[in-house]
Amino acid sequence: MEEGAVIKNDMEKAPRTGDWRYMHPEVDASKCIGCSTCVPFCPDACIEMRKRTAEETEKTPENFKEKEIVDFDYDFCKGCGVCASVCPVKAITMRK
């Protein structure tokens, strides 16, 4: 037991729930419009928006080059597929 039975959040001890996954989400840079609809729906808060790499920007359609793209944290992603199902432009696919 810890002192005073107070337990503090410690990410070192966090179960890596990514182990549960049998399908993982992948984003298609040529489709993602950076709307971040998927972000709050992710049960594990695994999705962060980040800047596009030069390679990704090249693939992106003209109007969205400045927009961010989704980035997954595979340490905690359980592979439920909610992000893929809520994506309005079907930019996320679940792959084995």
Binding site: M11, T17, V39, F41, P43, A45, E48, K78
Partner: peptide, 23 residues
């Protein structure tokens, strides 16, 4: 892990895959 969303409830919990409670 999304920094802003996990300010109060972190990842690493074990709700079923595809559960809406954390949201």
């Amino acid at each position: 892990m999304n920094k802003k969303l996990t300010e109060k409830l972190a990842s690493g919990h074990s709700t079923c895959a595809g559960c809406g409670i954390p949201a």
